[in-house]
Write a protein that binds this DNA or RNA. Structure first.
Length: 1120
RNA sequence: AGUCUCGUAGCUCAGUUGGUUAGAGUACUACACUGAUAAUGUAGGGGUCCCCGGUUCAAAUCCGGGCGGGACUACCA
């Protein structure tokens, strides 16, 4: 439908997909997005950072959620006069891309370097990562997300990597970068560390049976006060601490034992089941029953059968874990001692429980992350008696060269080992260690134990936790500043910032940057082989100059440095050999860095800062606003913060919103596997981006999880968009018919009728509300307020009650006032809703201002409406509220008595308490009367007792004053009779007799309600009461017929498809009663139905019967 | 296991500094209305405010302890 000159565009049916594609075209044609930035040139800027998505997967509906939030905030700020640049970006590195490439090529990591060169592999990654870029771009367009996709930052580009290098170098210079050890999942079979992601791949955890052992650690004599105490209990005999393990191969590397401070332990005298030697053991009280049967307590030791069963025992002492921390013990398997740190001491571990084992945990710091942490905290050293192949080193003489896990041996090797052991069955290291312990009286129990253990997803062999070299960022050094600066960030919701993020910061560990992969940003550190000299490269220029030094020194040959072949990825960087100051060759540390560093570096790297764009960077750091899913708390939100704090002593963002997940309608996580994932394209095509966006924003707070239900979307469409569209369509039809001109002078507000001033007052209240909601980053509140206004106030009250003013009014000024008021309201709504529903709002706006196709006007180029407090009349709003309430009450009475609204009634009685109440109702009485079709309102101020009243205490007021007497007072008030109430109303006070005091009750401390009026039809609610006179006089009855007839004629006109302005004539077949009844209303009927005449005739061509209440007539209407 | 979050009608959600008949929309049922009609009005049914304790004259609301859903992080001697 084309725009016709100076007309409001008419559109009966709301078709979101047409509107949206039309608006998209206009935006593209007129570059509306670019304009929205250009027109704010020189204004304050509002800085937004785009968290880069990865284009190697299809976008899902949750992306629509996150991007709606980003978009609406930016659009809002833009309306508020800020210049809001939105540079897009792509996250392009990382493991998922590598895995995808491997899947595509049918290779594994093992094949890299053999079947495929690193260069070819990375080339594949580079292509794969942008596989779905077009799909993403399409979604971006269709959902109405305004972001600059023409100049996005791309994390694999040299300029981006160069910026990252410069950041790393700054960290290096500040001594924030170091090489250290970290216990990581490690696959000896594959010879590589694994990420937690790889451990979480399905099938990695398998149930396996291992040999477990409870080892006896002999307590060593020491100055520890508990030693002598316990020693006394055993009469000077040795005593042992029991600790359980499912990995006996770690026992030679044991350096500590961990207890729980609050756990209760026992010292027990019993017998070792293998050696049958009496022993004194320490274990957790709760776990005693696992090892010793209660019935054998205090049994005679001499009755023991030397069979390992029915071990007699005797409890010698009980104490808390905290009592024995610091006790020393003898090393269990003394192959080697740690070079650094203390060892063989009892320490406290917060992770120790009494669920399993003995309540005492054997600590081998090299083979457990918890172990390492607790050991470091206690200054305990470590032993790593296993090499990277998973084999014992030579120093472990008994098992030298043997793999700690049976699974690492091939069948052949196992056979050989069996021969060597000289047994008919191969015994694992674990098993032989246990045997050794048993014979040495160092094992109290051993059994097969089934547990789930992680396996390498590539080799299917068990993994080990192993200390690996890694590069770390010393974030712990900046922890306090990070915590401090975090407090200045406005988090939405607050709890994520204080709670999840705050907690995370409080428990920081150094950031492990290293990743042993191929497709990612290389760590720019070159080291000599002995590790004594190293250099951190911070720019391409520096690399080149170091390179020429190396070439001059002869450690490095020729290399192609031309722009087109320079690629800061592997393998190029690995081919570069630099020279140290002492002339030694330096090779690059082979790691890549964590991709999270890539994204955390975007404030700088997106501008290739510090190499370029210093001005732009300075004015766009830190960000005013960022938003992502709550799952980014420890991801992007953290890395942005960490880098900014460490390098710039600044926050990276001032406001941050973390949105929840989008779940399916049953609250389950969406996944392709379950088939419950919602395709955003289908949803948007069918319901429109606006409805989708509106639904997501209005349904629940962004940070709550959203249960995505299509029915909710349909509801939004029906309740909001259809209603709004109908309202506009109504306006357009009559405005065009009446030739309403936008150029007409505005009628001053104070000259407009009550209802206009009311809706304008509501509108300005709404502006205030929406503005403060958006300012507070509470879009849900804004959406709900707009929705309520459109539905309840504008459509269901203002338009409904004003309808007649638009199509028949004698007063042209009144008509113009109505058009202007509705036009203003609709235009303002289009602006208020535009951040959330960018398409329809723009369509509506353009229609309202009669924009032509070639006109670039857009709601997104306007200024946000200003709430004018002088237009807000709370008093009037309250009055209208009363009108709505009273109308509703009267309608419910009509309903109860089955009197249709078309039947006029004479009178309604409204009891009031004072003249103020009367005034309020009087101000809106005409509206009420016409709405409910009643002739007059009569106010009664009752003192006669006809009106029966009920009094209810105001608990809030009285409770504060009376406290404990409240209950009694409440009862007393409820018992007040009519006389008492009357007294209270007229005298404003009443003496309340309570058991021990008198209380002078004030009028405002109670609520008085009318309950009933003798002989009337009464309804009441919220303090208001109405009484209806339902007597029908002859005249009222006749008017009822007339109204009924008008209704029938209107319906018939519609059925006949007449235009709203067509004139008709009405013929009714002679009918005495009807003629008499309708006589007085002929003019009224003709007027209402645009009839030239109403004739009673003796003949009618087409016989059609109509029911007028209890009459039946035959009537024909014809277009003239 | 830790951290965070949610739990109110069949469903989606409100519920102010604690204040007494716990609300709205939706869905359902019935009856109306109909020159805005995929709308609207009125009425009806529908509640263990997750549970248990505590504080208080008074708890959906505050405190303690649980339970359940979800997310993230770490891990299992």
């Amino acid at each position: 439908m084309a725009y016709s000159e100076k007309n409001f565009r008419e559109s009966k049916q709301l078709s979101p997909s047409h509107i949206e594609s039309e608006i998209l075209q206009i935006w593209n044609q007129h570059q509306t997005f670019e304009q929205s930035i250009a027109i704010r040139e020189g204004k304050n800027n509002f800085v937004f950072y785009e968290g880069p998505p990865s284009a190697n997967g299809m976008p899902g509906i949750h992306h629509v959620m996150a991007r709606t939030i980003k978009d609406l905030v930016c659009r809002y700020k833009s309306l508020k006069g800020f210049q809001v640049e939105r540079k897009g970006g792509w996250d392009t590195h990382g493991l998922p891309i590598e895995l995808q490439v491997e899947k595509k090529l049918g290779i594994t990591k093992k094949d890299i370097g053999s079947k495929i060169s690193i260069a070819e592999y990375n080339k594949e990654c580079r292509e794969e990562v942008m596989k779905f870029k077009n799909v993403w771009d399409d979604l971006t367009q269709k959902m109405g997300y305004w972001v600059d996709l023409n100049n996005p930052y791309v994390t694999f580009e040299n300029y981006y990597i160069e910026s990252i290098w410069s950041l790393l170098k700054k960290l290096y210079q500040k001594d924030y970068l170091y090489k250290g050890l970290r216990i990581q999942p490690f696959s000896p079979a594959a010879g590589t560390g694994l990420s937690s992601h790889e451990l979480n791949m399905p099938g990695c955890y398998k149930n396996v049976k291992d040999v477990s052992a409870v080892a006896q650690f002999k307590v060593k004599e020491s100055e520890h006060p508990q030693f002598s105490l316990l020693s006394e209990k055993t009469n000077g005999e040795d005593f042992y601490i029991l600790a359980w393990t499912t990995t006996p191969w770690t026992l030679p590397s044991n350096t500590a034992l961990a207890i729980g401070n609050k756990i209760n332990y026992l010292l027990v005298k019993t017998i070792n089941p293998y050696t049958h030697i009496p022993v004194n053991i320490i274990l957790a009280k709760d776990l005693l029953g696992k090892y010793l049967k209660a019935e054998n307590e205090n049994k005679d030791f001499s009755l023991y059968q030397n069979d390992g069963k029915n071990l007699p025992y005797q409890i010698l002492s009980e104490f808390r874990g905290s009592d024995i921390t610091g006790l020393l013990y003898e090393q269990l398997l003394p192959y080697a001692q740690p070079e650094e740190g203390d060892a063989f001491r009892v320490i406290a571990g917060d992770f120790v429980t009494t669920e399993d084992g003995t309540g005492i945990v054997h600590i081998a710091p090299s083979f457990g992350a918890d172990d390492m942490r607790v050991a470091q905290e206690n200054g305990i050293g470590s032993l790593t008696l296993v090499d990277r192949q998973g084999k014992f080193i030579d120093i472990v003489t008994d098992f030298a060269g043997e793999p700690v896990k049976e699974a690492y041996l091939s069948d052949e090797e196992k056979e050989q080992a069996k021969q060597k052991q000289g047994r008919d069955k191969y015994l694992s290291v674990d098993e032989r260690i246990v045997i050794k312990l048993k014979t040495e009286n160092k094992c109290f129990k051993s059994e097969k134990y089934e547990h789930s253990y992680p396996h390498c997803w590539r080799t299917d062999k068990p993994i080990l936790y192993y200390p690996l070299d890694s590069w770390f960022i010393r974030v712990t050094a900046a922890k306090e500043r990070m915590v401090e600066l975090n407090k200045t960030i406005n988090w939405k919701p607050k709890s994520t910032g204080e709670g999840r993020f705050g907690q995370w910061l409080e428990n920081l560990v150094d950031w492990n940057l290293s990743r042993s992969r191929y497709w990612g940003t290389p760590l720019p550190i070159w080291r000599t082989e002995d590790g004594e000299e190293e250099i951190c490269i911070g720019s391409i220029a520096e690399l080149k100059s170091e390179l020429s030094k190396a070439q001059a020194a002869g450690v490095m040959g020729d290399i192609d440095l031309s722009e087109k072949n320079l690629d800061l990825h592997k393998p190029f960087v690995d081919d570069v050999i630099l020279v140290s100051s002492k002339g030694k060759a330096m090779r690059r540390e082979s790691d890549l860095i964590d991709v999270w560093f890539d994204s955390g570096a975007m404030p700088y790297a997106q501008w290739h800062y510090p190499f370029e764009n210093e001005e732009i960077f300075k004015k766009s750091f830190p960000a005013d606003f960022i938003a992502e899913g709550v799952d980014q708390t420890r991801g992007w939100f953290y890395t942005l913060h960490a880098i900014a704090v460490m390098l710039y002593d600044s926050v990276a963002y001032k406001n941050v919103m973390s949105n929840g997940l989008v779940l399916d309608k049953n609250g389950n996580k969406m996944s392709k596997r379950l088939g419950n994932a919602v395709d955003p394209f289908i949803t948007i095509n069918k319901y429109g981006a606006d409805a989708t966006r509106w639904y997501m924003i209005s349904n629940s707070q962004p940070w709550d999880n959203l249960k995505f239900d299509i029915e909710g979307l349909e509801e939004v469409q029906r309740k909001l968009f259809s209603t709004l569209h109908n309202t506009y369509a109504f306006f357009a039809i009559y405005a065009n018919l009446d030739q309403f001109k936008l150029s007409q002078d505005q009628i001053p507000i104070h000259q407009r009728p009550e209802i206009d001033r009311w809706i304008i007052s509501c509108l300005h209240s709404l502006i205030q509300e929406v503005e403060s909601a958006f300012d507070d980053y509470e879009p849900t509140k804004a959406a709900r307020a707009i929705q309520e206004f459109v539905n309840d106030q504008l459509s269901n009250w203002y338009v409904r009650l004003s309808r007649r003013r638009f199509w028949k009014t004698e007063d042209p000024q009144d008509k113009i006032a109505a058009y202007q008021t509705l036009h203003t309201a609709l235009t303002t709504i289009s602006q208020l809703m535009s951040p959330i529903a960018p398409f329809y709002s723009d369509w509506l706006y353009r229609s309202l201002i009669q924009a032509q196709d070639n006109n670039s006007a857009s709601v997104h180029l306007t200024d946000f409406p200003i709430a004018k407090t002088e237009r807000i009349d709370k008093d009037l709003e309250a009055k209208m509220n009363i009108a709505q309430q009273l109308s509703s009450l009267i309608l419910s009475l009509r309903k109860r008595e089955n009197i249709k609204v078309r039947q006029p009634l004479a009178k309604v009685l409204i009891p009031i308490i004072d003249s103020q109440q009367e005034e309020m109702v009087a101000a809106v009485q005409n509206l009420i009367l016409s709405e409910v079709n009643i002739k007059t309102i009569e106010f009664v101020r009752d003192t006669t007792g006809i009106v029966s009243k009920k009094v209810k205490p105001n608990f809030k007021l009285l409770g504060k004053k009376l406290g404990a007497k409240m209950k009694e007072a409440s009862n007393a008030i409820l018992e007040m009779n009519a006389e008492d109430i009357n007294h209270l109303e007229t005298q404003k006070t009443f003496d309340l007799q309570l058991s021990d005091i008198n209380y002078t009750l004030l009028l405002e401390e109670v609520e008085i309600q009318t309950e009933d009026i003798a002989g009337w039809l009464v309804a009441s609610d919220k303090g208001w009461t109405v009484a209806l006179d339902i007597t029908l006089t002859e005249e009222l009855k006749n008017e009822g017929y007339a109204r009924e007839l008008v209704n029938k004629i209107q319906t018939q006109r519609k059925e006949n498809d007449y235009q709203v302005s067509d004139r008709i004539e009405i013929k009714i077949l002679n009918h005495n009663i009807a003629e008499k009844a309708l006589k007085a209303f002929t003019d009224y009927i003709c007027n209402e139905t645009l009839a030239d005449n109403l004739l009673f005739v003796s003949h009618i061509d087409e016989l059609k019967t109509y029911e007028l209440n209890d009459l039946e007539i035959i009537m024909e209407i014809k277009k003239k």
